[in-house]
Simulated scan of single mutants.
Amino acid sequence: MVIAKAEVRKIKRRTRRSHRRRAELGIPVGGKRPFGWNDDKRTLRTEEAELLAQAARDVIAGKSLHSILKNWREDGVRTVHGNEWQSRALKLALWNPRLCGWRRHNGDLVRDVNGVPVVGQWVPVITPWMAIDALFSSRVGPNVKADGTITDYRTPTHLLTGILRCGKPKGDGQICNAPMRVSTRPDLSGGFVYQCPSRSMGGCRGSGRNGTKVDECVTEAVLAKLEERKAARKKVDSEWNGEEELERLTKKQRKMLRAWQDDEISDELFFPENRTMEVRIKELRSERTQHALRVQRASVVTDEDVRQKWDSDEFDLAQKRALIRELLHAVIVIPVGGGGRRPFNPDLLVPKWIED
Rank of each mutant, 00 (worst) to 15 (best):
E247F: 12
G339H: 03
R181S: 11
E74Q: 14
D58G: 01
K352V: 15
L257P: 00
S64Q: 01
A23L: 02
S189M: 05
G208V: 05
P197L: 09
L257I: 00
A322D: 02
V2N: 13
R98E: 04
H105C: 03
R57N: 14
W85P: 02
D147G: 09
V116D: 09
V59F: 01
R205H: 12
R21F: 05
K170L: 15
K252P: 00
V59A: 09
A49P: 12
S266F: 08
Y194C: 03
R229E: 13
N96L: 03
V214A: 10
E247G: 10
E74V: 12
Q308E: 14
V333D: 08
D108R: 14
W102Q: 15
E278T: 15
K170D: 10
S238M: 04
K234M: 13
Q195G: 00
G115Q: 01
I281L: 02
L44K: 03
K41R: 15
R321G: 04
V193H: 08
I354K: 15
K168A: 15
G82L: 01
W72Q: 01
I265F: 07
Y153A: 11
V80W: 01
R139T: 10
A49E: 06
T79E: 10
A56T: 06
V279Q: 14
V80A: 13
V300R: 10
K234E: 15
R154C: 05
P335I: 07
G62A: 10
G101Y: 02
L317K: 04
S207K: 04
A221V: 00
R42V: 15
V144Y: 00
P351D: 06
N83P: 00
R185Y: 13
R21H: 11
E245F: 04
R285M: 14
A221H: 10
V8T: 09
K5T: 11
V2W: 06
K225P: 04
R20E: 14
G206I: 01
S189H: 10
R165T: 02
V336L: 10
W353Y: 03
Q261V: 13
T184K: 14
R9F: 06
K70W: 07
T46C: 00
G191M: 08
L94F: 08
P346E: 03
E326A: 14
R17Q: 14
N143W: 03
I27E: 15
N274W: 09
P197Y: 07
A131P: 04
G167F: 02
V144M: 13
L69Y: 10
A221I: 05
F192N: 10
M130T: 13
E355C: 00
D356Y: 08
F35T: 09
L349A: 07
C100R: 10
L164N: 02
R307I: 07
L348W: 09
R78I: 05
W310D: 07
A224T: 13
N83C: 04
R254S: 14
Q290T: 08
L65K: 02
R233Q: 14
L135S: 11
I324T: 06
V279S: 11
G36C: 02
H81I: 06
L269W: 05
R209E: 15
D40A: 02
V336M: 12
N114P: 00
